[in-house]
């Protein structure tokens, strides 16, 4: 512990500065933890009352105040599946192109990274309006899970590309040189050496994207829509879980109980996905070190 009686006299003494810094860091971490814990406890306590097995499988009734969220969970899953299935290969390919095949000092690379950063900072409602105009209206998909998933894919692509690109750039050049010395083609050196080495970073990027997509409301209002029926194809409109929570909390009188229960489901889902992805990336890292 720092000696506070001497702080005034030795305000610039390294010891006092270190102590103050340590206090500030602990306070910041404590506040952060308290906020997260408060939020989670609040949702858990208020949501647990309405949460049981039937809630997860039943159809919503009385505008969501009664019944469950079965069809909404299915729609949410399908929207996320479309978004990841489209964004992951595209994002990975773009990241490989940027990190491995483009000279890093080129003007094209600089412009690409600026435009990616701009894209990543665009509010999601703008993506929602774009998705509505492009996928729903121009391509004629209407209000559909496909349109919502593709809109989310556009939204998370910059995030995926940037994190994957950073991961690829972190792989030491000696590995590439080694592969080249062994006569491996550019493609197989990327596919067999660089990509597995960047695995944890790529997984982390995917996870961030998935989390952002799961929590998204504004981009989905005008694309995947509001219909809470069980979807029978990707071309049906389907309500996402976050949109359901928003509607129950803001539009439906008496919807608070089920809004909290749905929020708890969303929170648990995010925790599970985070946990799975973290252990998967640990597994990749261990395999890489062992190999």
């Amino acid at each position: 512990m720092p000696d506070f009686s001497s702080v005034r006299r030795r305000i610039f003494a390294p010891q006092a500065r270190d102590g103050a810094l340590r206090m500030a860091i602990w306070a910041a971490a404590g506040i952060l933890f308290a906020c997260a814990a408060w939020l989670m406890l609040d949702v858990a306590v208020r949501g647990a009352a309405g949460l049981d097995w039937r809630f997860l499988v039943d159809e919503p009734a009385r505008a969501g105040r009664a019944g469950g969220i079965g069809p909404i969970l299915v729609s949410t899953g399908l929207i996320l599946a479309v978004a990841i299935a489209v964004a992951a290969p595209l994002g990975l390919a773009a990241a490989i192109f940027l990190a491995e095949f483009l000279p890093s000092g080129s003007r094209f690379a600089a412009w690409t990274s600026i435009s990616l950063d701009v894209l990543a900072g665009i509010p999601s409602i703008v993506f929602g309006l774009f998705g509505n105009a492009f996928f729903s209206v121009w391509l004629g998909m209407g209000f559909s899970i496909l349109s919502g998933g593709l809109t989310l894919a556009c939204m998370i692509l910059p995030l995926l590309i940037r994190t994957a690109e950073h991961g690829l750039r972190m792989v030491p050049d000696e590995w590439r040189h080694g592969a080249a010395a062994l006569g491996m083609s550019r493609f197989s050196s990327v596919w067999r050496i660089v990509l597995p080495a960047a695995g944890p970073a790529v997984t982390a990027g995917l996870l961030l994207g998935l989390g952002r997509a799961t929590a998204e409301t504004a981009a989905l209002v005008f694309t995947s829509g509001y219909v809470d029926r069980m979807p029978s194809s990707l071309l049906d409109s389907g309500r996402a879980l976050s949109l359901h929570i928003y509607d129950l909390a803001m539009n439906v009188a008496g919807g608070d109980r089920n809004a909290y229960a749905s929020a708890l489901v969303l929170l648990l889902f995010l925790i599970v996905v985070n946990g799975l992805a973290m252990s998967f990336s640990d597994y990749l890292l261990r395999k890489r070190i062992a190999a």
């Binding site: 391509l139 004629g140 998909m141 209407g142 990707l234 071309l235 803001m250 539009n251």
Partner: peptide
């Protein structure tokens, strides 16, 4: 997909939009 979408918007579906 766009081709499918056109087929799905036949007369058996009524789309209602507006006030939340």
């Amino acid at each position: 997909a766009p081709g499918f979408a056109a087929a799905a918007h036949a007369g058996d579906r009524i789309v209602v939009t507006g006030s939340s």
